[in-house]
């Protein structure tokens, strides 16, 4: 445990050292937030509402989506992908540490700076984008938010395993992020999607990334306890799925001789 705490600390420090570059990257993402806000403002002008969302609610939804979209992304999965690609991971396997826990610790290490960025962007957004509702229930929202990191980590770690079979990490990342964007409700709230897509999204882990925290923030979730339970279930399930997959995949490289 101590070693993973140390890893998290070291990562936090190195992430901090590159804060300038990260800040520029975040500034880029802010333009995405700006574009979607402008689109929804045009759509919901004059008090209109779509799918049960009016403009202030939609703005809050977008901001929560931005925040959850940042959690667990600063420390990129390319660190692991590169380690797999150049065979370094084989060296990790002989060390008395757990690769999955190491990378989870690294993701936790990035969390501090992520929270700082989220706070800054949220502050500016609230100032500029005008009135929006506060969280319906702070505690429930915080609980839901807490599961974003483990779920994202599980999905990321699991898909990064594909690099054991393909050299091309970019393609995997793009495809995964695309699918996640749709099914998490980051592109549009799931409530506006066709019924079949909604039911699919309800049982998949992605909704826990954006939709669940955003709906709980807005008080639009009919049964927040259940949604959080689903998040928790996926967080645990993904952890063990990823573990299982990693064991299988790393056996593959040891057979091939790394």
């Amino acid at each position: 445990m101590k070693v993973y705490l140390a890893i998290a600390r070291v990562t936090a420090r190195s992430v901090l050292a590159y804060r300038g570059a990260y800040a520029l990257g975040i500034a880029g993402s802010c333009f995405q937030l700006l574009a979607t806000t402008a689109l929804w403002t045009a759509l919901l002008a004059g008090g209109a509402s779509i799918g049960g969302f009016d403009l202030p609610e939609m703005k809050a939804y977008l901001l929560v989506g931005f925040a959850t979209g940042l959690i667990g992304t600063l420390v990129g999965d390319w660190v692991l992908a590169n380690r797999i690609r150049d065979g370094q991971v084989a060296l990790d396997l002989v060390k008395p540490i757990d690769t999955q826990k190491v990378f989870f610790a690294q993701n936790c290490g990035g969390l501090g700076l992520e929270i700082v960025f989220i706070a800054v962007v949220s502050g500016v957004f609230v100032l500029l984008a005008g009135p929006m509702p506060g969280p319906a229930d702070g505690w429930l929202f915080a609980a839901s938010l807490a599961f974003v990191l483990p779920i994202r980590f599980g999905i990321t770690f699991l898909t990064t395993m594909l690099v054991f079979w393909t050299e091309n990490h970019h393609g995997v990342v793009w495809a995964r992020d695309g699918v996640a964007a749709v099914l998490s409700g980051a592109i549009v709230p799931l409530a506006m999607m066709p019924g079949w897509l909604q039911s699919a999204a309800a049982v998949l882990p992605f909704a826990g990334l954006t939709s669940t925290p955003a709906l709980i923030y807005l008080g639009k979730a009919p049964n927040p306890g259940l949604l959080i339970a689903i998040q928790a279930g996926w967080a645990v399930a993904l952890w063990y799925l990823a573990r299982f997959a990693f064991r299988g995949a790393s056996r593959q490289i040891t057979i091939h001789g790394g």
Binding site: I50, G171, W174, G178, V188
Partner: peptide, 28 residues
């Protein structure tokens, strides 16, 4: 394999906005 993954990724990426537009214009 990379070739197909990348082509698939390209199609997914470009379709994202279409999902948005499709959903929205179903309502307005």
């Amino acid at each position: 394999a990379d070739f197909w993954i990348l082509i698939g990724a390209g199609i997914v990426t470009q379709s994202l906005g279409l999902v948005f537009l499709g959903v929205v214009f179903a309502k307005v």
